[in-house]
Simulated assay, not measured.
Amino acid sequence: MASPGIDFVTMFYWLMKYVVIGPAVKAIFRPWIVGRSNVPKNGAAILASNHLSVSDSVFLPVLVDRRMSFLAKSDYFTGKGIKGWATRFFMKASGQIAIDRSGGKASEASLNTGLQVLGRGDVLGIYPEGTRSPDGKLYRGRTGIARMALEAKVPVIPVVMVDTDIAMPIGRTVPRIVRVGIVIGEPLDFSRYEGMENDRYILRSVTDEIMVALQRLGEQQYDDVYASSVKDRMPRRS
């Protein structure tokens, strides 16, 4: 009989991070990190990261000391066969939460899921661009991150992933063994906008401030359009 108070989900997460996935990732890829101390040791916070590769959601949780959750598209959790099982296992083991990104009510549900994570006092990882960059540029941010930051009253910490698109570019299933890095900036405080989480102009202003911080931190080329629009204009792979 299980002892009261044991959280098996938490136990599984830490087992994967410190015994299985974490040591393997560190040994193989030798990732480096700058600014680790900018992540608060306690309390809820949002880590806002650029998004170059699906592997971003593996490297960041492994190298950040706090337990964190990522909002990941539900497609990663529905694959079939051995590959689908392996992907689903890896996503759950690294603390990722499946969300529906189809818009409308699904977007509202995703926002509420993020708020639940923050309400527990945990760290939430978000990609403000909403999808992976198709070409290495930094694109316009979606305002959902601003709503969560203002409603939950938490700081937003900019994070830049470095060379993860070289390790695992879009379309590649087996990563290349290259050294990747993470740069974490100082927390952004938006308490001056308290109570304005329903003002769309404020939400856009907060989101743009986050994207400026990301651009300055990583020096990526910035394009003020949505990454999803760029992807829609690209030829479909056969």
Rank of each mutant, 00 (worst) to 15 (best):
G5M: 05
D7C: 12
F8Y: 15
F8E: 11
V9H: 09
Y13S: 03
Y13L: 05
W14R: 13
W14V: 05
L15E: 02
M16Q: 04
K17V: 01
K17Q: 13
K17E: 02
Y18L: 12
Y18H: 15
Y18W: 14
V19F: 09
A27N: 11
S37W: 08
N38C: 03
V39C: 08
N42S: 13
G43I: 05
A44C: 03
A44R: 01
A44V: 03
S49H: 04
N50P: 04
N50G: 06
H51D: 03
L52D: 05
V54W: 11
S55C: 04
D56R: 01
P61R: 01
L63F: 07
V64S: 00
D65V: 03
S69L: 04
L71R: 02
S74D: 15
S74F: 03
F77K: 03
G79W: 08
I82W: 14
G84C: 09
R88T: 11
F89T: 15
F90V: 06
Q96L: 02
Q96V: 00
A98P: 15
A98D: 12
G103Q: 04
S107Q: 03
G114I: 09
L118A: 06
G119F: 03
G119L: 05
R120Q: 15
R120K: 15
V123Q: 00
V123D: 00
Y127E: 02
Y127M: 08
E129R: 08
G130M: 07
S133M: 12
S133Q: 12
G136R: 11
K137Q: 09
T143D: 09
G144F: 09
G144P: 06
R147Q: 14
A149T: 03
L150V: 08
E151G: 01
P158G: 12
P158I: 10
V160A: 14
D163S: 13
I166L: 12
I166C: 00
I166H: 03
A167V: 01
A167H: 00
P169M: 07
I170Y: 08
R172Q: 15
R176I: 02
R176P: 00
R176E: 13
V178I: 09
V180G: 04
G181H: 02
I184S: 04
Y201D: 14
I202F: 07
L203Q: 13
L203C: 09
V206A: 05
V212F: 09
A213S: 14
L214V: 13
L217F: 06
Q220T: 04
Q221T: 10
Q221W: 00
Y222E: 09
D223C: 07
Y226R: 13
A227R: 11
S229C: 02
V230M: 04
D232R: 14
P235C: 02
R237T: 11
